[in-house]
Amino acid sequence: MSYQFTVSPDFTPDHLSGWYIFNTWLQHQTDNAIHLEMYNDFHDQRVAIQKNNVDLIYANPFDAAMLVREKGFKPLVKSLGISDEAIVAVNADNHVEDVAHLKPGIKVAVTEAPDVHMMGMIMLEPADLDASNVEMVASDTYVLVAKHLLKNEADVGIFLAEAYDDLSNMIKKQLRILVRSQISVIHHSLMIGPRLLDQREKIQNILVQMANDEKGKGVLDSLGFTEWQVVNDEEMEFMIDLMDTLTM
């Protein structure tokens, strides 16, 4: 039997090959045939999940509730020390100093990443801004979010903090951070579906031990991670509850 593994489409492009290397490593370690399917966007990935095609997923926190509560997925691990944080930034020439001074009608450049979008919009709430009174400028990547700000095609950009920090210094010099989230408890997680659940403990142990093995460590490096850390059911339920409060 072959299983399907997929990765949240908001992965850093630099780590694309890392996920293929990880999949090969995982197949060897678990003696399972696992096919890595990279979907172009969240919509295509969610269609595959709804069709029960997915068995293993490095999931965006926004999708965790659906995976656990509707599709019977369980958490395995998360990357140690990495949480999803968002940044709201403007063109450095913009005179606005505080989010609260932004006005309805502004253009907001965003990517498709649902958790970052949500955190960014929460950080705009102090200015009484929401989806009904701003204009979204959809962008495929965070570099394009930055470009929209630099060309004054958007007033505000919402970034994954890690992606903002990875922008070139030349770009960052022309931007200014208005607010950076410090939430700490929202994170991507590797999750396992019903067809593989009987192997959950075995796979979890293999992943947790990965950093102790030289080859495993190299694979983690290619993903930009240092170590996997167990996510237990209650920790996942806590994050789902928290996300639930934030979508209201």
Binding site: A100, E125, P126, A127, E237, L246
Partner: peptide, 19 residues
């Protein structure tokens, strides 16, 4: 916080309000 169909407690999350 619903666990196995039962309310086990409550989570409260506060964020910055608009003035």
């Amino acid at each position: 916080n619903v666990r196995n169909g039962e309310v086990m407690g409550y989570t409260s999350v506060r964020r910055k309000p608009s003035r």
